Simulated assay, not measured.
Amino acid sequence: MKLKINRNAAKVLKEMLNSPEAEGKKIRVVITQNHGNHGHYDVILDTPAEHDEIVATDKDIDVLLDSREPLLDGVWIQYFHVPQPGFFITNPSTGFLEK
């Protein structure tokens, strides 16, 4: 599975990983709503599960992706400060929706 993270997102994700509640956890991308050919995505802190693939990124962040979910392959995690701060998670190969 593949995954990209922009610099702004990497900074915010590293802050999440350095929080007390992140001890022993990794970043996970989840699909909050599945519409067949695209999904709504979110990022959470979680521990690895049986069907997870741990994807290493060029930003030194390991991300958990459920290998059974094809909509997760190729996601791009971005973080923007304007018009309001927040993650914008897309999958260019399947369509996209923001967090």
Rank of each mutant, 00 (worst) to 15 (best):
residue 1 M to L: 09
residue 3 L to D: 09
residue 4 K to C: 04
residue 4 K to T: 13
residue 6 N to S: 06
residue 6 N to T: 05
residue 8 N to Q: 13
residue 11 K to L: 10
residue 12 V to T: 08
residue 12 V to I: 15
residue 15 E to H: 09
residue 17 L to S: 08
residue 17 L to D: 04
residue 18 N to E: 15
residue 18 N to C: 00
residue 19 S to D: 08
residue 22 A to N: 08
residue 25 K to S: 04
residue 25 K to Y: 04
residue 25 K to L: 00
residue 29 V to E: 01
residue 31 I to H: 00
residue 31 I to Q: 11
residue 32 T to V: 14
residue 32 T to D: 08
residue 34 N to I: 01
residue 34 N to H: 13
residue 34 N to W: 11
residue 34 N to V: 02
residue 35 H to C: 11
residue 35 H to I: 10
residue 35 H to M: 15
residue 36 G to Q: 12
residue 36 G to R: 09
residue 37 N to M: 13
residue 37 N to R: 12
residue 38 H to W: 13
residue 40 H to L: 12
residue 44 I to W: 11
residue 46 D to C: 04
residue 46 D to H: 03
residue 46 D to Y: 07
residue 50 E to Y: 03
residue 51 H to C: 04
residue 51 H to I: 00
residue 53 E to M: 00
residue 54 I to Y: 06
residue 58 D to L: 06
residue 59 K to A: 09
residue 59 K to W: 07
residue 60 D to I: 00
residue 63 V to N: 08
residue 64 L to N: 02
residue 66 D to C: 11
residue 69 E to K: 07
residue 75 V to H: 08
residue 76 W to S: 10
residue 76 W to T: 08
residue 78 Q to T: 14
residue 80 F to E: 12
residue 81 H to R: 11
residue 85 P to E: 15
residue 86 G to S: 13
residue 86 G to H: 12
residue 92 P to E: 15
residue 92 P to S: 10
residue 94 T to Y: 15
residue 96 F to Q: 12
residue 97 L to Y: 06
residue 98 E to I: 08
residue 98 E to C: 05
residue 99 K to R: 08
